[in-house]
């Protein structure tokens, strides 16, 4: 059974089609790039998988089941916004994750936070947005999940932070798990991808193993993506 499958998945807002008839299969043990411009439907697709939107038609299946308690146990999701209660201190947030997620490991999370010189007694509201995002990434990557879904983890950060984020992802994801990374910054990330999915105007226009695509087109994924969306 596929880890994740989307069948004829569509989402309309009033008349606007945010996602149209998406069919997709995500196997285990792969790092997958969900690549598209801003407003292409990446986030809509991700929100549907995470039970944050009701599909207009079609369905999402995780291990053969619709999103629910079971799927939430095995998916670790990083949204593109800050989603923690900002009145909480860092150690309170860690405790919160420990209480709700059986597969959350506090020790590695604490270690990673310490590497960032973070005071656990600090309130989230007292931190910069970039710092809050790092805390979230650490929390998400400290779960032993089957599927990690990271929505724009590299959006608007400096190159040093970008390296830190990629390192954190690569060194912490659970062995045998799959990772879906959505981004429009392809050059920075393409060498860690097994497979790529191009999405545009709510439709999947290409899925392929990354190296196969490079071989076929004799170009980088970034280059191919640019060519694809020029015309």
């Amino acid at each position: 059974m596929e880890l994740l499958e989307c069948k004829n998945l569509s989402k309309f807002y009033d008349k606007k089609e945010a996602l149209k008839d998406v069919n997709l299969k995500v196997p285990r043990g792969k790092i997958i790039g969900l690549l598209g411009k801003n407003g292409s439907g990446k986030t809509t697709l991700i929100k549907l998988i995470n039970d944050l939107l009701i599909p207009t038609s079609g369905e999402v299946l995780i291990n053969g089941e619709k999103p629910g308690v079971e799927s939430k146990k095995i998916i670790s999701y990083l949204p593109e916004r800050t989603y923690l209660d900002k009145d909480m201190k860092v150690n309170q947030v860690i405790k919160y994750f420990e209480e709700f997620y059986d597969n959350f490991n506090a020790d590695p999370a604490r270690k990673l936070l310490k590497d960032l010189d973070l005071d656990e007694e600090q309130k989230l509201s007292k931190m910069s947005k970039g710092m809050q995002e790092k805390v979230q990434l650490i929390l998400v990557m400290s779960r032993k999940a089957d599927l990690y879904i990271l929505d724009e983890p590299l959006g608007g950060v400096d190159p040093a932070t970008r390296d830190y984020i990629l390192d954190t992802i690569l060194s912490n994801f659970n062995e045998g798990a799959s990772v879906i990374i959505s981004t429009h910054l392809i050059a920075d990330i393409e060498r860690i991808l097994d497979e790529v999915i191009f999405i545009d105007k709510g439709k999947i226009i290409l899925t392929s193993p990354a190296d196969e695509l490079r071989n076929k087109e004799n170009a980088s994924i970034d280059e191919i993506f640019r060519r694809c969306f020029k015309c």
Partner: peptide
């Protein structure tokens, strides 16, 4: 050092 134009595994 990798060049993104060619399959990474070959390099």
């Amino acid at each position: 050092i990798f060049d993104n134009d060619r399959p990474i595994y070959i390099q």
